[in-house]
């Protein structure tokens, strides 16, 4: 499976890459929402996108609304990974079509457990 890691922080991309590569994902990276959209438009079809919120050029929220507006990308799982932790922000992201949400800082366990909920790793919990 493929994972696209979208974050303007090189350090954060590095951390997420290691966690997700350890779960047998092939990883790709983008420094902002626009770069990520360019990769999708070029034909990359990841099963999973890890999306930061605050990024220059195009933020994660806008990226998510763009992906969800495109029927051809409806099978891509979108998980936000961000410091935005206010209730309103989480609701907004889920309403825009994010499937899951991780608040920074996080431990590797947290990412694994979220991927289990999503059914991308192990088994999910009841709906």
């Amino acid at each position: 499976m493929k994972a696209l890691i979208i974050d303007d922080s090189r350090a954060m991309r590095s951390i997420l890459r290691r966690i997700v590569a350890g779960l047998d994902f092939e990883t790709f990276e983008a420094a902002n929402g626009q770069e990520a959209l360019d990769q999708l438009n070029d034909g990359l079809m990841p099963e999973l996108c890890l999306v930061d919120w605050n990024m220059p050029v195009m933020d994660g929220y806008t990226f998510i609304t763009s992906v969800r507006a495109n029927q051809g990308w409806r099978n891509i799982t979108l998980m936000m990974v961000t410091t935005e932790s206010e209730q309103g922000q989480i609701v907004k992201a889920l309403a825009a079509g994010a499937h899951e949400y991780v608040i920074k800082p996080f431990t590797p366990d947290a990412i694994v457990e979220k991927l289990e909920i999503l059914g991308l790793v192990g088994r999910g919990i009841p709906a």
């Binding site: 922080s9 090189r10 350090a11 954060m12 605050n54 220059p56 961000t82 410091t83 935005e84 932790s85 206010e86 922000q89 920074k104 800082p105």
Partner: peptide, 27 residues
């Protein structure tokens, strides 16, 4: 710069979420 910048980004981002909003973070 990448690592230390990300550290303050995470701490700052969390503190932003505690204070009255909406607010934005600089780089």
């Amino acid at each position: 710069a990448d690592a230390v910048g990300e550290l303050v980004n995470m701490v700052g981002g969390n503190i932003k979420s505690l204070m009255p909003g909406p607010s934005v973070l600089t780089l």
